Computed example of a mutant assay.
Amino acid sequence: MHLTHKLLPFRQLTVDELYQLLRLRSEVFVVEQNCVFLDQDDKDQQCHHLLLYANDQLAAYCRLVPAGISYSEPAIGRVITSPAFRGTGLGRAVMELAIQGCKDLFGPHDIRIGAQTYALPFYRSLGFVTDGDTYDEDGIEHIEMVRKPD
């Protein structure tokens, strides 16, 4: 499998890239997870978008959120792996790229995520620790997690 990635601010995304990432987010968050929510939350325009391609197909994605937008720290959000590529390690790959991207863009700061609780072991393996109580977001149990700088 040939992997490539792009990390772009919103305004540098092509129309096709924007369509692909929004389609993937809708496919998983709205259709697969059966969540009726407004995915376009007016944060995308202030974020960097990490697109991971496998053989020229969008296989995984997340957005890097500057401090002060979602949390007081920089954040990684909308983490997603295409159903066609699950179990291939691309979730880990996109998160490792995102962590490095946060360091490069925002410096050596804590990184915060709002994790779906079923994925806690995965995020712990990447150095995140829980911070707070569980909460319901769109019918799915979440918990905030923080990763300290290396």
Results as ranks from 00 to 15, higher is better:
A93F: 09
F128K: 08
I80V: 15
I69F: 08
V28T: 11
G68I: 05
I99W: 01
S70V: 05
Q45S: 13
F122Y: 09
A93S: 13
D39N: 13
I69V: 15
D131S: 14
R92Y: 11
T4R: 05
S82K: 04
S125L: 10
V65N: 00
L50P: 03
Y71F: 15
C102W: 01
P121M: 11
R11W: 12
R25M: 04
Y123D: 01
R78A: 06
D131F: 11
Y135C: 13
L38G: 11
H49M: 07
H48S: 14
Q33P: 05
A59N: 10
L120Y: 12
S70L: 10
V31W: 06
G107I: 09
E141R: 04
C102F: 06
E141M: 10
D138R: 07
D16A: 15
L50W: 01
G77Y: 01
P83D: 05
L64V: 05
Y61T: 04
N34E: 14
N55E: 07
I99C: 04
I80N: 06
Y123H: 05
D16Q: 15
P74G: 08
K148Q: 14
P9D: 04
Q33W: 01
V31F: 06
Y118H: 15
R86A: 07
I80E: 02
L22C: 04
G101L: 06
L52T: 05
R147G: 01
V31G: 06
V28C: 07
S82I: 04
N55M: 00
Y118Q: 15
Y135Q: 10
L51Q: 07
T134L: 03
K103I: 11
I113M: 11
Y118I: 14
M145Q: 04
P9Q: 11
Q40P: 03
G132E: 06
H109R: 12
G139R: 09
I80C: 12
G127R: 08
E27I: 03
G139N: 07
E96H: 09
V146T: 08
Q20K: 15
G89F: 13
I140N: 03
D110W: 01
I140F: 01
N34G: 08
S70C: 06
E32G: 12
Y19I: 02
E96N: 07
T4P: 00
G107W: 09
I80H: 01
S26A: 14
D138H: 14
L21K: 03
T4Q: 10
T81H: 01
R25K: 08
I143R: 01
A67E: 11
Q45V: 15
H49D: 04
I99K: 02
T4W: 00
L24A: 03
Q33T: 07
V79N: 03
I80M: 09
V28W: 00
E73A: 13
E141G: 02
I99D: 00
H49Y: 08
G87E: 05
D44V: 06
R78M: 03
Q45L: 13
D150I: 14
R63I: 02
I143D: 03
R147D: 02
I69E: 08
H48V: 08
Y71K: 03
N34Y: 05
G89Q: 12
H2I: 10
T117W: 10
L126D: 00
L22V: 03
C47D: 03
K148Y: 04
Q33M: 13
Y123N: 01
D39W: 09
P66M: 07
M145V: 02
